[in-house]
Amino acid sequence: MDLRHLRYFLAVAEEGHFGRAAARLNIVQPALSMQIKALEEELGGALFVRSSRRVELTDAGVLLQIEARRTLEQAEHTRLTVERALRGETGRVRVGFAGNAIFSGKLTADLRRFHQRYPDAELTIDEVGPQEQVEAILAGHLDIGYTPAHSNTVGPDLAVRRIGDWEMLVALPEDHALVAHDCLTIAMLAGQPLVLYEAHDVHEHLVMLLTQKLGSRCHIAWRAHSTLSTLAIAATGLGLALVPAPLQQVHIPGLVYRPLKEADLTANLVLISRAQEASASVKAYLELVIGPVY
């Protein structure tokens, strides 16, 4: 007995006539009669009482009608569930973020689009440091990462897509003398105590550039380990913070932002994932936010 037998049986039971049931199933009547006969022989008894005008269910047939409907409904549910999983409509996507992802709006926009398209897929979202994101993705603990590019975002096992670039700003206390300028230059930072967000090695490149341009007058006074710590240090007047442009959305009392006129100093955001991804839901996320994944 298979699902096809049950479908044939239900067609006859619902039509009450072999000819109409055969037409509904788009098969010839003798073939349908043979299938029902084989089903009855397999189960060991009659399922229909046949007459010249119609067929009626036996008691066993009534019971099979109930069970057959239940079985076919479950089979259809199973088929649809698996198809949805293969399309990425269900399953889980684990996302880590750092840097500009939240302040640029890119992370929230991507998550919103995915949730709207696949409302039954499970999303988990955690703030994870740039270096830790790579380790977690390769270890299978995260699926997607939003991070500034750094030395570990290079390798054969990692897929990296650049999704944002921004100019740098100077965050400084509102009573600082440099606030009078609408735009600052690197030369204006000479001798000033500077605050850098030291979460990954990209900022070592930033230090190198500052040293090249300012020489001995490059004064790195603070190395903070979080975005808010960087801004808080600047707001207290302990130093001038170099931050990506999206951070100007963060309002801290007593803190103002000024553009930094220096083409070599920029901030970026990349999306990282496994180069070989098996999860349909993760593939669906990637295709939605960056395009087809092969």
Rank of each mutant, 00 (worst) to 15 (best):
I125S: 01
I137T: 04
L169N: 03
P148R: 05
R112A: 14
G164I: 09
A136Q: 14
F114P: 02
D110A: 11
D126C: 05
G140W: 11
K106Y: 13
D157E: 15
T124I: 10
F97Q: 08
H115Q: 12
G155R: 10
D143I: 01
V170N: 04
R162Y: 14
G105Y: 06
E89S: 05
A139E: 13
M168C: 10
G129L: 12
D120K: 10
A159D: 11
Q133R: 07
E167M: 13
E132Y: 09
P156Y: 10
L169P: 05
R112I: 07
A121Y: 04
D157L: 15
E167S: 14
V134K: 00
V128R: 03
I163C: 13
V160N: 09
G155A: 10
V128E: 05
E132F: 08
P130I: 03
G140C: 09
P119W: 10
E89H: 08
T124S: 15
Y146P: 00
D165P: 00
G155E: 11
L123K: 08
N152H: 13
E89V: 01
H115A: 14
G105N: 01
G99M: 06
V134F: 06
G164N: 06
T108M: 12
Q131A: 13
E167A: 15
N152V: 11
D143K: 02
L107S: 05
V134T: 07
G155T: 10
I125F: 12
